[in-house]
Computed example of a mutant assay.
Amino acid sequence: MNWIILIIGGLFEVGFTTCLGKAKTSSGTEMYLWYVGFIISLFVSMALLMKASQSLPLGTAYAVWTGIGAVGTALMGIFFFKEPAEFWRIFFIFTLIVSIIGLKAVSPHE
């Protein structure tokens, strides 16, 4: 169950970085709403990381959480913020995904 909590926390990390990107391109009330989304997503993400790390190895939990955030944020950048999708960028995103799966595979089970 804590792996699921950790994955959800990583997805909220993608949420708070996406909110930052959207706030950067917004103005007025819309910008402030994106910042509110950032704060909420940040709080939820950190709370879920804290919960998951109570029973998962901290180093592994943090690496997986950060990896999910990094991969998700890079993909959001490509799909929604028109960032380049060059071969090497996709290659290294793929290596991050493989590394996250590897860390989960070699970690002690609950």
Rank of each mutant, 00 (worst) to 15 (best):
1 M>N: 09
2 N>H: 14
3 W>H: 09
5 I>V: 15
5 I>G: 06
6 L>V: 08
6 L>N: 04
7 I>F: 13
9 G>D: 07
13 E>W: 00
13 E>N: 10
15 G>Q: 01
15 G>K: 01
16 F>L: 08
17 T>Y: 02
17 T>A: 10
17 T>N: 10
19 C>Y: 01
19 C>Q: 00
20 L>Y: 02
24 K>N: 12
25 T>G: 01
28 G>W: 04
28 G>D: 02
28 G>T: 05
28 G>Q: 03
29 T>D: 00
29 T>N: 00
31 M>S: 09
33 L>K: 04
34 W>N: 04
34 W>T: 05
36 V>P: 01
37 G>V: 01
37 G>N: 02
38 F>I: 07
38 F>Y: 14
38 F>Q: 06
39 I>C: 11
39 I>V: 14
42 L>H: 11
43 F>T: 15
43 F>Q: 05
45 S>D: 09
46 M>H: 13
46 M>S: 14
46 M>W: 12
46 M>D: 13
46 M>A: 14
47 A>R: 14
47 A>F: 15
49 L>T: 10
49 L>C: 09
52 A>V: 06
53 S>T: 11
53 S>A: 15
53 S>H: 07
53 S>P: 04
55 S>I: 12
55 S>V: 15
56 L>P: 03
56 L>T: 08
56 L>A: 04
58 L>W: 00
60 T>A: 10
64 V>L: 04
64 V>Q: 05
65 W>N: 02
65 W>V: 05
66 T>N: 07
67 G>F: 06
68 I>V: 14
68 I>G: 08
69 G>V: 08
69 G>S: 05
71 V>I: 15
72 G>C: 08
72 G>H: 08
72 G>S: 07
73 T>L: 07
75 L>I: 15
75 L>R: 03
75 L>D: 07
77 G>W: 04
77 G>E: 03
78 I>T: 03
79 F>I: 10
79 F>P: 03
80 F>L: 12
80 F>M: 10
80 F>R: 08
81 F>T: 03
84 P>N: 12
84 P>E: 13
85 A>Q: 09
85 A>H: 10
86 E>N: 13
86 E>I: 11
87 F>R: 10
90 I>R: 08
93 I>D: 13
95 T>I: 15
96 L>G: 11
96 L>R: 03
97 I>G: 11
98 V>T: 12
98 V>M: 14
99 S>V: 14
100 I>S: 11
100 I>A: 09
101 I>H: 08
101 I>T: 12
102 G>I: 13
102 G>T: 13
103 L>W: 05
106 V>L: 07
109 H>R: 11
110 E>G: 12
